[in-house]
């Protein structure tokens, strides 16, 4: 299982796609498996698909916990290296 990092949706694209922002890195993902996502929502990703929609407050709390546990820094580092 991958780390369930809440990732912010910054733009909706045609064909059920969206742009997300992960620590300053933007990538296109599929919204085909989750309904009702709007710009500003957070989603949990798995292999390029949004799996779950989170409200911003829930996402902020999870991100804070991950940061406190030292899990977030590694993942964001990966995203930046891969950009």
């Amino acid at each position: 299982m991958c780390l369930a990092i809440p990732t912010r949706v910054v733009e909706l694209l045609p064909d059920h796609q969206a742009l997300v922002d992960l620590g300053g890195v933007r990538k296109a993902i599929s919204l085909e498996l989750v309904d009702g996502v709007v710009v500003g929502d957070y989603v949990i990703l798995h292999v390029g698909y949004a799996l779950t929609r989170l409200d911003p407050e829930e996402a902020r709390q999870t991100l804070a916990l991950m940061a406190e546990a030292g899990l977030l820094e590694q993942a964001l580092g990966d995203a930046r290296e891969g950009a």
């Binding site: 299982m1 991958c2 780390l3 369930a4 949990i44 990703l45 798995h46 799996l51 999870t62 916990l65 991950m66 546990a69 030292g70 899990l71 590694q74 993942a75």
Partner: peptide
Amino acid sequence: VRPPVGRALVGLPPELALARIPLYYSLCA
């Protein structure tokens, strides 16, 4: 490579560790 979630739970009270597990995994929470 899998995220070091187990290591992130060390030092926590058990009930807090248990509550955090489903937040950390994207699958099979």
